[in-house]
Amino acid sequence: MASVSVPIALLPLNNNRHRHSGNLRSYLPVVSPLRRVRAYVSVSTEIGVEEQNNVSKELELFACPICYEPLTRKGPSGLNLNAIYRSGFKCQRCQKTFSSKDVYLDLTVTSGTTAYSESKPIRSELFRNPLVSFLYERGWRQTFKQSGFPGRDEEFQMAQDYFEPVSGGFLLDVSCGSGLFSRKFASSGMYSGVIALDFSENMLRQCYEFIGKDDSLLNKNLALVRADISRLPFSSASVDAVHAGAALHCWPSPSNAVAEISRVLKSGGVFVGTTFLSTRLNSPLSSRSLGTLGQILAPSTNTYSFFAEKEIEDLCKTCGLVNYTSKVDRAFIMFSAQKS
């Protein structure tokens, strides 16, 4: 038993800026953007050792994307949408603050910037497009069956089988898109918390919209986070499972991304991913088949990076992952590896 200090947020009551129609938005509290007074109060409460450990894990999970120092948090505890929305995060080293913007917690390096902007690769910008984000789960993802993808339910169950050794832990669903699998993971009850992470603001808004249609998800430990896959805002060795559905081929630097995934995984943690294998059908003009000419034409002829199975296995192993295994059907591959 122990006495702990609990952060309490004292919020003004009257402001309508964040009041919206719809089940999910009306569920979230009204928060004033003009004045927010916060304070720490010492609350003597009797909690068990296991509960203390759960609180500790939660507080140490988010980290600064600049220096990777754990973020301090002021506001209600928990990973559900309501708690994250009402919380503020800060890096004591960089003095940078982070908060929920609209419907997600923005933990990118550029969070809060107003004048600075930079261009991203086509493969990254494509999914930030509102129309693409809207259509992704409403038809586009279903076309993946033509390449061998098994369908959402079977694909989800395949991933669940791989994650069985880390049941009860935190799961990070990177490049989650509209949250197709994030929502399934959260509803399964198999994890203590699920974080749906994507670089696309519009994909996260779509995820938020889908969550709003399912009341059972409102109180689940499911948080929406915007972040760069090559700069994950989590402490090293802090998560138990990482899922990346149909994502590897879209990443600007798959090697940097897998290295980051390896960094945040705990020892014994599991990484599961699906992607399209390199074939004549999906990459007839890839840089790997055209050599130097392909390097010149790549920006206009091949938006994505497709790999052979051996390359994916080699990448996982060189990033410190072991026990690699995979299942292949035509251009589809689901692969899994563990942190040593």
Rank of each mutant, 00 (worst) to 15 (best):
V174K: 09
S175M: 13
S175N: 12
G177F: 12
S178D: 14
G179N: 01
S182W: 14
R183M: 14
K184C: 03
A186C: 05
S187E: 07
S187G: 05
S188V: 14
G189E: 13
M190P: 04
Y191N: 13
Y191F: 15
G193D: 06
G193K: 10
V194Q: 13
A196K: 02
A196E: 05
L197M: 15
S200P: 02
E201M: 00
N202H: 09
R205H: 04
Y208W: 14
Y208T: 04
Y208V: 05
F210T: 15
I211M: 07
I211T: 09
I211R: 01
G212D: 09
K213Y: 07
K213D: 14
K213W: 12
D214K: 09
D214I: 06
D214T: 03
D215M: 06
D215N: 10
L217I: 11
L218T: 08
L218Q: 11
L218E: 07
N219L: 08
N221P: 00
L222I: 09
A223F: 06
R226Q: 15
A227K: 10
I229G: 10
I229A: 15
S230E: 15
S236C: 02
S236M: 08
A237R: 10
V239I: 12
D240Q: 05
D240G: 01
A241D: 08
V242S: 03
A244Q: 09
G245I: 00
A247P: 10
A247T: 11
L248E: 07
C250T: 10
C250A: 15
C250I: 08
W251P: 04
P254S: 02
N256Y: 06
A257E: 08
A257M: 11
V258H: 04
E260A: 06
I261D: 01
I261Q: 01
S262K: 06
V264A: 02
S267M: 01
S267W: 00
G268I: 11
G269F: 03
G269Q: 02
G273H: 00
T275I: 06
F276D: 14
F276V: 12
L277R: 10
T279M: 06
L281V: 11
N282A: 03
S283H: 06
S289A: 07
L290M: 13
